[in-house]
């Protein structure tokens, strides 16, 4: 039992962050907080990938004398791309919020719906 908790602590962190982010996206009415939650949610996945790439006792994947075990570099490379995607998403989301604020004068979801009578 302890093994499961301690031995996989990185995954627990990932799951905690994932759920926290996901919950924020769903629960919060403030658009900025939604985007923040979305970022946390995405970041947790980055951590997941980085953990996957780790090899026990492995070192940075640079060929050097005296080292034979390296961490898998591929997930790290992948996640660089994913980070770029995440950053663009956040940027676009924030830009949209700015426009929404200009159009509605608020960034609270319920107030926006009230103005549009859409709920």
């Amino acid at each position: 039992m302890i093994d499961i908790i301690v031995g996989h602590y990185n995954y627990w962190v990932v799951i905690f962050l994932m759920m926290a982010g996901f919950y924020t996206v769903i629960d919060r009415g403030n658009l900025i907080k939604k985007i923040a939650g979305l970022s946390i949610f995405q970041t947790s996945v980055f951590l997941l990938y980085i953990s996957i790439g780790y090899v026990s006792d492995g070192t940075t994947p640079i060929i050097a004398e005296g080292f034979t075990r390296y961490s898998n570099p591929l997930p790290h490379v992948l996640i660089l791309t994913a980070i770029v995607v995440g950053v663009s998403t956040t940027a676009l989301g924030l830009a949209l919020i700015v426009r929404i604020n200009e159009a509605y004068g608020t960034i609270e979801e319920d107030e926006i719906h009230e103005q549009d009578k859409s709920l």
């Binding site: 949610f41 995607v85 929404i100």
Partner: peptide, 20 residues
């Protein structure tokens, strides 16, 4: 219309969750 903005935002949230 300004609702295009909120619709796009809603889609962004849903779409990003899906992609993630």
């Amino acid at each position: 219309q300004r609702r295009a903005l909120t619709s796009a935002f809603q889609y962004l949230i849903m779409g990003t969750i899906g992609a993630t």
